[in-house]
Amino acid sequence: MKALVFGASAGLGRCLAEELARRGYDLLLIAGDPSDLEATASDLRLRFGVIARTCACRVAAAEDWLKIVRPELEAFGAPEVLMFPIGAASEDDRGLLDLEQAREMTEVNFLAVVATVSAMLPELLRRGTGTIVGFGSIASARGRSRNVVYAAAKRGLQSFFESLRHLTAASGVRTQFFQVGYLRTQQNLGRRFLLPAADPQPLARDIVANLATREGVFFRPRYWRVVVLVLQLLPWFVFRRLSF
């Protein structure tokens, strides 16, 4: 069994890579920093005896990162599992990003997943098996004055996964899309949230344990489904007064 994990050197991506390795998956790990990536790969090879290949590349609009990733994918062979726990948000994303910044934000949060899935999909469909796992954000539940482009990109990704599900419905390829709430990661340390942040480790365990059984859209932690529903149902005259 083979799996590809984007953003595998830290946060949820690293936890997912570890859970997959624990279950015996050979891995292709992709992330921006070679030293973090190599440390994670060494650890997984030594602890779980799996093959862990690495591909260090920075997903950025200005760089032809797919050129770096594509030969690695070919060398690794078509994986059964593709995971994209990647994304980047910015405090400056309040409707005033210039084209370059907006392009960057879209590349990381949307186009990187689209491009990689598109590269792998023909092989997955030919084999008629595989699971593609995308990660959205509760920030995209409803457009607001913060995370403007980020939320748009994540909503675009959700739509892409919806289409992907429809596209693969007749095949054995499965799609899963996780709407993830606040996570207890390095970037979020010290930030105050309306609801508690989740630990990425148990989340990764849950996702990997149910790879073969689920399809569709999921909220983690689960109570976010209710929160998102309430947010979406709020009448505009109420929502416009909210600041969060």
Binding site: F6, G7, A10, G11, A31, G32, R58, V59, I86, G87, A88, S90, V108, Q186, Q187, N188, L189, G190, R191
Partner: peptide, 11 residues
């Protein structure tokens, strides 16, 4: 991918 700044919490 993701910011490299180091967030800190007061505790």
């Amino acid at each position: 991918m993701g910011p490299s700044t180091l967030a800190a919490a007061q505790q």
